[in-house]
């Protein structure tokens, strides 16, 4: 059972540019389904999908759930609190027990980097990574790519700067992999304490000052300052962070061109991004959320199928 994407979606690092292109192109017609009066098609009727969320999430979990329901899949949500995880059950045991109830796919969010891959190696069901530690968040990367493509066209040669807390950000990693594969030029900008060591090895430009990034970029993907992951003093204070690295109207007004503003949410308004930027004319933050459902529908649809080689044989044969 391999689909055009394989069994799992674990990270954009493992996809080819053709596969990424396929997902984005497949997401395109799925946008229309969410505009219908009856927002539902029967493509995944009878499939059972478990959303296994070991970390808090509003956007991603609900977006996956909408995507699953709009494809007519049956869904079950498992949160770590209130489940046997609290009694000390291991990740693999939880998943194997779910699998014993005959499920088709698991969407997993977990605080440990590599948790999705670990699980995918040990169960037969398809696994979709909905964010693992500071590693990857592939569907977020894909919806960012789709939103950028909607607004900028072909991404080849487009300049995208990822701003802020790159160190703790799985979104940043998925973006860097996805954007570079699609031929975009990628930069990061943030305080050195919040950039990983050897970030240059990813093939990205590093800007020390937000003004340089704004001067250079076609789009800024502004990351959330992940205060909950900061165990020691990475920055002096959020106020000082805003003063030095905040994406503000005044700074954007000095840009040589209109800059598209993305943010994966949830936003710390007045810290990494000011309200008049987040709600401003070049913000596509809510378009990202809309596109998120379409992208996740595309991923689920592409992963769900049986054998694509049989599709050839069936062509012209089953009109």
């Amino acid at each position: 059972m391999t689909s055009a994407l394989g069994k799992d979606l674990l990270g954009l690092e493992f996809l080819s540019s053709e596969q990424i292109q396929l997902i984005l192109d497949t997401a395109e017609p799925f946008k229309e389904i969410s505009e219908r009066a009856i927002k539902k098609v029967p493509a995944l009727r009878g499939s059972t999908i478990v959303n296994l969320f070991f970390e808090n999430s509003t956007r991603t979990r609900i977006s996956f759930e909408f995507a699953e329901k709009r494809l007519s899949a049956d869904t079950v949500n498992v949160a770590s609190s209130g489940s046997s995880v609290q009694k000390g059950e291991t990740l693999v045991d939880t998943a194997r027990n779910l699998e014993a109830m005959r499920i088709d796919m698991v969407v997993i969010r977990h605080g440990a980097s590599g948790a999705a891959t670990f699980l995918a190696d040990r169960i037969e069901s398809g696994v979709i990574n909905a964010g693992d530690g500071t590693h990857e968040h592939p569907t977020q990367g894909l919806l960012d790519l789709l939103t950028l493509r909607d607004n900028l066209g072909d991404l080849k040669g487009k300049r995208v700067c990822i701003c802020g807390d790159v160190l703790h950000s799985r979104v940043a990693r998925s973006n860097i992999w996805g954007l570079t594969k699609m031929g975009a030029e990628v930069a990061v900008c943030g305080p050195r304490s919040l950039l990983p060591n050897a970030i240059e090895d990813f093939g990205v430009t590093v800007f020390e000052r937000i003004e340089q990034a704004i001067e250079w970029a076609d789009a800024l993907n502004v990351l959330r300052l992940q205060l909950e992951r900061m165990t020691s003093g990475y920055i002096p204070s959020s106020r000082e962070y805003n003063r030095v690295f905040g994406v503000t109207r005044e700074r954007l007004d000095r840009a040589p061109r209109d800059i598209l503003i993305l943010h994966p949410g949830p936003m710390n308004r007045g810290v990494e991004i000011d309200s008049d930027v987040a709600d401003g004319p070049h913000s596509v933050i809510l378009d990202q959320v809309t596109n998120g459902v379409a992208v996740r529908m595309a991923v689920l649809y592409l992963l769900a199928g049986g054998k694509p080689e049989l599709a050839e044989a069936a062509k012209g044969n089953s009109r």
Binding site: E28, P42, A43, G305, G306, K307, L310, A314
Partner: peptide
């Protein structure tokens, strides 16, 4: 209409990657 998502054979033939627009 694109009927790809309404086919009854997704489980046997796999998804057809290209889904066209319904309008």
């Amino acid at each position: 209409l694109d009927i790809t998502l309404y086919r009854d054979d997704l489980q046997t033939i796999g998804p057809r990657p290209v889904v066209g627009p319904t309008n």
